[in-house]
């Protein structure tokens, strides 16, 4: 680890001709440099202890959940807090999954999530492209307007949007959960715009001279270049849709159309108090895809910050 692990400042691999920002050279030997200077061995040790303690605090809830999901009901109700259960009850998982109708709810959730993620990528990249690469009257004004809608609490529009979808007959369908994602979110549009804006104009010009239409430039040139932004959009819109509760709660009525979040909440209302071990198992399963996604795409989570241009 002589180079000190992954550094958030490092720019990710960029495809195409995107300019690599100059790498900052670190004038101080990297070994044990804290932001405030050099430290002795004892202090380094203390620092590690502090870090480890914090990490334990942050990870303990996961351990608690996992062990709780494998305990017998008696052990759970007795309130023993051994993180390693005496007898491992794998049977809690099938029992919990059956109670949230896992097959059905998982399929529903994936169906909705896939459409929403696809829609978010396509629409946000289109809009981002529009803002980044075309000049038209009021563009900057509209762009700022779009960004400021991020600050609008969703509750202001919740009721009329509900009335709109109701009048379209979309209640108890997945359309209210999917269609808004096809109409672009400011957050992702912003990231796409920032990315597209830094692609050199010569590249676009060259494509145009070769007779590429706007659509071709978008589809053949811009999208293939924007892998990292697509990944970030996919990840975040996946997490949003997967964990969304309010919208399914308002729009979905039939239990066979429930998403996982709804089913879990319903399960909690029904069995939560009596069977905490099932609840823990069901929560575990619901969280799992998000955690897997995190581990699979860790670098993009970090990168998303760089994309928004928020770093210094």
């Amino acid at each position: 680890m002589s180079s000190g692990g992954i550094s958030l400042g490092e720019s990710p691999r960029r495809a195409g001709g995107a300019p690599d920002p100059p790498r900052r050279m670190n004038p101080i030997p990297a070994r044990i440099r804290l932001w405030f200077g050099r430290y002795s061995t004892g202090q380094t040790l203390a620092f590690y202890v502090l870090l480890a303690l914090g990490a334990v605090v942050f990870l303990l809830p996961f351990a608690f959940m996992l062990s709780g999901s494998l305990k017998s009901e008696q052990a759970e109700q007795a309130g023993s807090l051994s993180l390693i259960p005496r007898h491992i009850h794998w049977g809690n998982y099938p029992a919990a999954l059956a109670r949230i109708h896992f097959g059905v709810t998982l399929a529903n959730t994936l169906f909705v999530t896939t459409w929403a993620v696809l829609g978010q990528i396509i629409s946000s990249s289109l809009v981002g492209f529009g803002f980044a690469r075309f000049r038209f009257r009021g563009r900057n004004l509209i762009f700022i307007l779009m960004l400021s809608t991020m600050m609008l609490p969703g509750q202001v529009t919740m009721i009329p949007v509900f009335l709109l979808f109701r009048s379209l007959g979309w209640v108890n369908t997945y359309l209210p959960l999917i269609i808004p994602a096809w109409l672009a979110s400011p957050f992702f549009v912003f990231m796409f715009r920032q990315f597209f804006a830094q692609i050199p104009e010569e590249l676009v010009e060259a494509a145009r001279l070769d007779g590429a239409s706007n659509w071709n430039i978008y589809w053949r040139l811009m999208l293939p270049l924007s892998g990292p932004v697509i990944a970030i959009t996919a990840i975040y819109s996946f997490l949003w849709t997967w964990n969304d509760y309010l919208n399914p709660l308002i729009y979905i009525n039939s239990p066979n159309k429930y998403t996982l979040a709804l089913a879990l909440a319903n399960f909690n209302g029904q069995y939560g108090v009596r069977h905490p071990q099932y609840l823990m198992a069901a929560s575990c399963i619901t969280m799992l895809p998000c955690l897997i996604l995190f581990f699979a795409a860790q670098k993009y989570f970090v990168e998303s910050i760089a994309m928004t241009g928020l770093k210094g």
Binding site: I6, R33, F58, N243, G272, M287, L291
Partner: peptide
């Protein structure tokens, strides 16, 4: 921000909970 060996693991540990949200977070 410290450049210490193994800091990446800690970073993962501290960041991990923030990907959990919604109902699963509440029930946990």
């Amino acid at each position: 921000d410290a450049r210490l060996p193994g800091i990446r693991l800690f970073r993962t540990a501290y960041f991990l909970p923030s990907v959990v949200s919604g109902v699963a977070l509440a029930t946990l």
